[in-house]
């Protein structure tokens, strides 16, 4: 009999407390962000620098070292590079990234010496066909970037390289254990 009234008391008491908690939510600010249109600034601008969105390649500073292609666990990066026998330059003939396969793991941008291949905060990559998700960065064969000794002087490449190196700086540099 005691447990009978105990049950009634507990039921009423806990429901009362629960109602008080939910009532206190009527004055709390909703947590929702009204993506995509009713926000003050584009959501991409609020994402952290490390955000791993769609991959992008700055061809100006790509050295053609193929480190990203080797690092990719699912082989979604395909690079064709050949060495020009006369100028002794690396010529990039193809740099394709299949974003349909890409799993945004970030393993490719880690070994890049210049920060050429990097993740952008852009994540809106929906498309109507798989084919259009293959990003072909090389339109016509170009010479790969050759790192200069000392600071970069070319005004078009300078800022790009600066951004690339800043991206690389985010990664932890290994120390002796």
């Amino acid at each position: 009999m005691a447990s009978y009234f105990q049950n009634i008391r507990e039921t009423l008491g806990t429901i009362f407390e629960g109602l008080a908690i939910t009532a206190s939510h009527f004055v709390r600010k909703p947590f929702t962000l009204q993506y995509p249109d009713r926000i003050d600034i584009p959501i991409q601008d609020t994402l952290p620098f490390r955000y791993r969105g769609l991959l992008d390649v700055d061809l100006e500073i790509c050295t053609g070292c193929l480190a990203c292609e080797r690092a990719c666990p699912i082989d979604c990066i395909v690079i064709d590079a050949r060495k020009d026998t006369q100028t002794r330059e690396m010529i990039l003939e193809r740099f394709d990234i299949d974003l349909a396969k890409c799993m945004f793991c970030g393993l490719c941008s880690e070994p890049c010496p210049t920060g050429s291949i990097h993740h952008t905060p852009e994540f809106e990559g929906a498309d109507y066909s798989l084919e259009s998700l293959v990003r072909r960065f090389v339109k016509a064969p170009v010479a790969a970037y050759k790192p200069t000794k000392g600071p970069e002087t070319d005004p078009t490449i300078g800022p790009v390289l600066k951004r690339g190196l800043r991206y690389l700086d985010e990664f932890a540099s290994p120390g002796a254990s």
Binding site: R50, R52, F104, C105, G106, F171, A172, P174
Partner: peptide, 23 residues
């Protein structure tokens, strides 16, 4: 996300440590 750039599939750690230091 701030720490490792992803919200679900973190891929934060590497063999021998972590890929990113705390921001």
């Amino acid at each position: 996300e701030e720490l490792c750039g992803a919200r679900l599939t973190f891929n934060y750690m590497r063999i021998g440590g972590c890929a990113w230091d705390l921001p």
